[in-house]
Amino acid sequence: MNERYSRNRLYVNNSEQSIIKNYPILLAGCGIGSNIAECALRFGFENITLIDGDIVERSNLNRQNFTEKNLQQNKAQTLYKRLKEINPEADIKYISDFIDHNNVNKILKNIKIAFNALDFTSDIPVIFDEIAQKKGIVIIHPYNLGWAGLVTAIHPNGQNFQILGHNKQLNELKVVDFVMEELAQKEKEVSWLAKIVNDYKNEQETLPPPQLSIGSWLVAGMCTTLLYKIATEKKSRYFPEFYFKTIAD
Score class of each variant (00 low, 15 high):
157 N>M: 13
193 L>A: 05
195 K>M: 10
88 P>F: 01
158 G>Q: 05
151 V>T: 11
146 G>I: 01
167 N>P: 01
86 I>K: 09
77 Q>V: 04
180 M>V: 11
124 I>T: 01
110 N>W: 06
167 N>Q: 08
82 R>V: 05
106 K>M: 12
136 G>T: 03
189 E>P: 07
86 I>T: 08
113 I>G: 09
179 V>P: 02
99 I>H: 03
182 E>Q: 06
171 N>W: 03
90 A>P: 02
131 I>T: 02
159 Q>D: 10
96 S>V: 13
125 P>Q: 11
107 I>S: 12
180 M>P: 04
79 L>P: 00
127 I>R: 08
141 H>C: 04
146 G>D: 05
184 A>W: 13
155 H>R: 13
175 V>W: 00
109 K>L: 12
136 G>P: 01
113 I>F: 10
176 V>T: 07
175 V>D: 01
154 I>W: 01
176 V>L: 02
146 G>W: 02
191 S>P: 03
179 V>Q: 05
139 I>P: 08
91 D>K: 13
103 N>L: 07
87 N>G: 14
105 N>P: 01
133 Q>I: 08
142 P>Y: 01
77 Q>A: 05
148 A>M: 09
144 N>V: 07
170 L>P: 09
168 K>P: 10
92 I>G: 06
166 H>M: 08
191 S>V: 03
151 V>E: 01
91 D>Q: 12
97 D>C: 14
99 I>G: 02
143 Y>S: 14
94 Y>G: 07
161 F>V: 01
84 K>A: 09
179 V>F: 03
120 F>M: 03
98 F>L: 11
156 P>N: 03
102 N>D: 15
143 Y>D: 09
197 V>E: 14
77 Q>P: 05
90 A>Q: 04
101 H>S: 06
102 N>T: 14
98 F>R: 12
159 Q>K: 00
139 I>F: 07
124 I>G: 08
104 V>E: 04
168 K>C: 06
194 A>E: 14
124 I>V: 12
170 L>H: 06
173 L>N: 10
191 S>M: 12
121 T>R: 05
128 F>I: 02
89 E>I: 15
171 N>V: 07
132 A>L: 10
179 V>N: 02
122 S>A: 04
106 K>T: 14
92 I>N: 03
